[in-house]
Design a protein around this nucleic acid. Structure first.
Lengths: 221, 221
DNA sequence: CATAATTATTAGATTAGTCTAAATTTTTAT
DNA sequence: ATAAAAATTTAGACTAATCTAATAATTATG
């Protein structure tokens, strides 16, 4: 007796989930419309439908938030998305900047058993190729505290553990500079006027803009 | 500039393809409706749409047939379906009776590169888990001539190379009798009144109904 | 070959998701 | 505090895919 949602409904829940993670306030219609690349009026319609089905709490003009049930579904989709990304990169040899679009489709495949078998086949990865944590079968997800490279103090060293922006352009830039997950970085100096920083990576000095450094998750060493 | 078809359109083309394979006449509205589990009126609507897009040839009251372009698309979907089935059985350890439904979804994933990478990962399989041939990248497909076990003469031996019916029930029956692709079978005797046959398989005698034997593809040894 | 039976098509609705334009509510800024 | 701006909702329309019921064409049969 699985609840059957359409792909569109699933995508709305996923978007609400991700917007909730980055703000704590209710998700506004306009923000959701931007995320879903649709119009606010369409969002209002969909929100009503999701509210009728008890996946979101909704008060007119006050935005939405996921219910327990809605959250559970959103996390499941995130789990599927990330496991498929691991498959695409680790098994099919895609690069990390190519997999998002395909995983967007694969995440909607419906099966009670598929994703758990895939997880086993992939040997229970804990993170996707962009460093995002993979929820387990029960929906538990370990949110790493988000320390950005931009906030690391001069002289400190850290390890790159994730990317915030996973656009193809950003990832390709990182590839071109040989920056990847696991790279060890030491902050050498910081410019006050533009917040750019000079880092030591792969035994070389490299200057990176604030735009870059604020999109890299790190773990202080 | 890929042609973007809906899943439903793709499914119609696939169904027309499979019905064309088994009759050589134009595919009738009713037959297609049965295959698609929908109503004849819906089929008429869809056929018109597909004809407008030049994927089928259609004359009112005369049924449809695939155009070159329609056939190309249908074969691509068949290729995707069968490669995903191989993945599910060989890599995720599904049994051959569980994979059809999931492959029905996976076959609609859109990507210019995915299926070729999957094919390589699977080491270029030539047949799916039910013995059906997998079209290559160019759409070439080797149709094995369809010799059924039911037509094998007494005293002759053959190898099981495919199943015509791939319903879960049929496949589970075969599993229970330890009949699988590659099994060597000798026809010992044939009953005239019900066309059931006795075969020797795995060094044992087994009686099987016509219903079974006419759904097993074999290669005479 | 005429009429019954079958098969196929059309007409008119319905549902999901979207859109534009108009109306309403909330927020922001004098 | 109130007017302007911004955000949101509503109304009405559109497309894709489906359905039922009515109509039309084909085929089968006596």
């Amino acid at each position: 007796m699985e609840i059957q949602l359409t792909q569109t409904e699933e995508n709305y829940l996923k978007s609400i989930y991700s917007l909730e993670l980055s703000s704590s306030k209710n998700v506004s219609t306009t923000l959701l419309a931007k995320k879903m690349k649709t119009k606010a009026s369409s969002v209002t319609d969909m929100i009503k439908k999701l509210a009728d089905k008890d996946f979101v709490d909704y008060k007119k003009y006050r935005g939405v938030s996921l219910t327990k049930g809605g959250n559970t579904i959103a996390v499941k989709i995130v789990r599927k998305h990330r496991l498929w990304e691991v498959f695409l990169v680790n098994k099919l040899e895609y690069s990390w900047d190519e997999v998002h679009e395909i995983a967007e489709q694969l995440e909607h495949i419906k099966s009670d058993t598929l994703i758990d078998k895939l997880e086993e086949f992939l040997e229970f990865p804990t993170h996707d190729p962009h460093g995002d944590p993979i929820p387990d079968k029960e929906g538990n997800i370990e949110h790493h505290k988000n320390i950005m490279l931009s906030s690391v103090k001069v002289e400190n060293s850290c390890k790159i553990i994730g990317v915030k922006d996973s656009s193809s352009e950003f990832l390709k830039y990182l590839d071109s500079k040989n920056i990847h997950l696991g790279s060890i970085v030491k902050v050498i100096s910081k410019e006050v006027f533009d917040n750019s920083i000079t880092i030591e990576i792969n035994k070389q000095l490299l200057s990176i803009s604030h735009q870059i450094s604020k999109n890299l998750f790190v773990k202080i060493l």
